[in-house]
Simulated assay, not measured.
Amino acid sequence: MNRLLARLNIDPYLLLLVGTVALASLLPARGVWAGVAGGVADVGIALLFFLHGAKLSREAIIDGARAWKLHLTTMSLTFVLFPLLGLAVKAIPGLDPSLATGVLFLTLLPSTVQSSIAFTAIAGGNVAAAVCSASFSNLAGIFLTPVLTAILITGKQGGFSTDPIIAISVQLLLPFLAGHFLSPVIGGFVTRHKQVLGYVDRGSILLVVYTAFGAAVLEGLWSRVTLSELGLIAVLSLAILTVVMAVAATIGRAMGFSREDRIVLLFCGSKKSLATGVPLAGVLFAQAQVGAIILPLMFFHQIQLMVCAVLARRFAAQAEA
């Protein structure tokens, strides 16, 4: 089964996400159980960010600062070009407002870490720079995503508020910083058991998805969203990814980056993190809104993995030739 999924460039975790959405649609958490599931999800997310902080090496931050032009260019794609494209999509008439907000929200998120590094390695890119660039993006996203969300989304709906930023600081940033400061003590343990701790990461996200979609279903999500709109979200996700990758390739050549660094720019600058986006959405939006908000992110997540897998193998073949 895993071999078949690999050939089709389908992430097995996506099947778990789809299964979780189906379960939440059929058996959403109600009453006291909804409160219990939400509380457990909050604890799991705090633990997830604690572990992310513990895995981030201070040495990687210092070493990565040397390639500041590459990292600044990557961040410009992530937090400038992407949001501009998200605003353009949100202006499309006739698109469900919740889904349009979800598309805009995904464009405000930081880059992925694991997949960006993995694809860079497969393609023969600068792996050390990819580690630094992806880590910088995630660290900046904890600050920038809430601010951009407050300005472009929640601020438009009811005036600018610092409440989301405060909530992020308490629920996500403090655990992250605590884990990072303890990294010299527990970093080795986290690295040695990263496969087991990965289950904590993914399990926490699945629990948030379950509670979020359950609340959205009870609010009538599937009566508002049509199959044609879901298809449109998939098309828009592919279009956004194509534009960003084309710009990344053009800028990489124009700035004279080496082939290895252009690969870093392409993969780190074109991705959006599901692992960071789901917890942030749970903090920044009302529970009944989160299901629709993260739906476009789930589409984009799988599309980016499929496209990047094809490109990484093509770059690897070119390098061998």
Score class of each variant (00 low, 15 high):
residue 78 T to N: 14
residue 79 F to K: 11
residue 80 V to Q: 08
residue 81 L to W: 02
residue 81 L to G: 11
residue 82 F to H: 11
residue 83 P to G: 12
residue 85 L to C: 10
residue 85 L to I: 06
residue 86 G to T: 05
residue 88 A to Y: 00
residue 90 K to R: 15
residue 90 K to M: 13
residue 91 A to M: 05
residue 91 A to Y: 00
residue 92 I to W: 09
residue 93 P to M: 10
residue 94 G to I: 00
residue 95 L to V: 13
residue 96 D to I: 08
residue 98 S to E: 10
residue 100 A to G: 14
residue 101 T to F: 05
residue 101 T to S: 15
residue 104 L to Q: 10
residue 106 L to M: 15
residue 106 L to Y: 09
residue 107 T to F: 08
residue 109 L to F: 03
residue 109 L to N: 03
residue 110 P to C: 09
residue 111 S to N: 11
residue 113 V to M: 13
residue 113 V to P: 07
residue 114 Q to G: 07
residue 114 Q to E: 05
residue 119 F to Q: 05
residue 120 T to E: 03
residue 121 A to Y: 00
residue 121 A to C: 09
residue 123 A to I: 07
residue 124 G to A: 09
residue 127 V to S: 15
residue 128 A to H: 09
residue 128 A to D: 13
residue 128 A to K: 14
residue 130 A to V: 04
residue 130 A to N: 12
residue 131 V to G: 09
residue 132 C to W: 00
residue 134 A to C: 13
residue 134 A to E: 11
residue 134 A to P: 12
residue 134 A to I: 11
residue 135 S to Q: 07
residue 136 F to T: 05
residue 141 G to I: 06
residue 141 G to S: 13
residue 141 G to T: 09
residue 142 I to V: 14
residue 142 I to Q: 04
residue 142 I to L: 15
residue 143 F to W: 00
residue 143 F to M: 10
residue 143 F to A: 15
residue 146 P to S: 04
residue 149 T to L: 04
residue 150 A to N: 01
residue 150 A to Y: 00
residue 151 I to N: 00
residue 152 L to M: 12
residue 152 L to R: 05
residue 152 L to V: 03
residue 154 T to R: 06
residue 155 G to I: 07
residue 156 K to Y: 01
residue 157 Q to F: 11
residue 158 G to Q: 12
residue 160 F to T: 09
residue 161 S to C: 02
residue 162 T to A: 14
residue 162 T to R: 03
residue 163 D to I: 02
residue 166 I to W: 06
residue 167 A to R: 15
residue 172 L to E: 05
residue 173 L to S: 11
residue 174 L to K: 09
residue 174 L to T: 09
residue 177 L to I: 12
residue 182 L to N: 04
residue 182 L to K: 08
residue 185 V to T: 13
residue 185 V to M: 11
residue 186 I to L: 14
residue 187 G to V: 04
residue 187 G to Y: 02
residue 195 Q to C: 00
residue 196 V to T: 12
residue 196 V to K: 12
residue 196 V to R: 12
residue 197 L to G: 12
residue 197 L to V: 05
residue 198 G to Y: 00
residue 198 G to K: 04
residue 199 Y to V: 13
residue 199 Y to N: 14
residue 200 V to K: 04
residue 200 V to F: 06
residue 200 V to G: 11
residue 202 R to K: 15
residue 204 S to E: 05
residue 205 I to V: 15
residue 206 L to H: 08
residue 206 L to K: 06
residue 207 L to H: 06
residue 207 L to Y: 05
residue 208 V to W: 02
residue 208 V to D: 02
residue 210 Y to D: 06
residue 210 Y to C: 07
residue 210 Y to I: 06
residue 211 T to S: 15
residue 212 A to M: 04
residue 214 G to Q: 04
residue 214 G to K: 02
